[in-house]
């Protein structure tokens, strides 16, 4: 698989796992982006949508991946517990993606979740 395909698949798997985690309200683009996207489709504006709330970056040094997510936490859930749960869920969801890529089993994914707000 090419790096581009792996990145795309990592981001897709990570986003799905994060959204399914208890206490996650939404990922970036979040409320601003949703309103912006709704406004864009309503006006037919050509202003580009902001990127998805997940980004996967490959470390050229050792071939490992960093996945960064930006999310909002649902009120009533402890923010640190949510980011921990997201990390575990995303690690589990992305493991098969990188193991499939590298025959030597060296694919490692580091997950960072950033809370942008509590809603």
């Amino acid at each position: 698989m090419t790096e581009r395909i792996v990145r795309s698949e990592l981001e897709r798997a990570a986003a799905a796992a994060a959204r399914a985690t208890d206490g996650v309200a939404f990922l970036r683009p979040g409320l601003t982006g949703l309103l912006r996207a709704a406004a864009t489709s309503a006006t037919g504006s050509r202003y580009a949508s902001p990127p998805e709330g997940v980004r996967a970056l490959r470390n050229s040094a050792d071939g490992s991946w960093d996945v960064e997510l930006r999310l909002t936490v649902r009120r009533g859930h402890r923010a640190a517990d949510v980011t921990r749960a997201v990390r575990l869920a995303v690690e589990m969801a992305t493991r098969p993606v990188v193991q499939g890529e590298d025959g030597t089993g060296g694919g490692q994914v580091s997950v960072t979740a950033i809370v942008t707000g509590i809603v």
Partner: peptide
Amino acid sequence: VVRLELRPGRTLPLGTRPDDTGWIF
């Protein structure tokens, strides 16, 4: 929420366990 998302700024660590990697703006 819109204003918060337009001005992220610095981040602070969330969680105190050694393997915690979470942050909050």
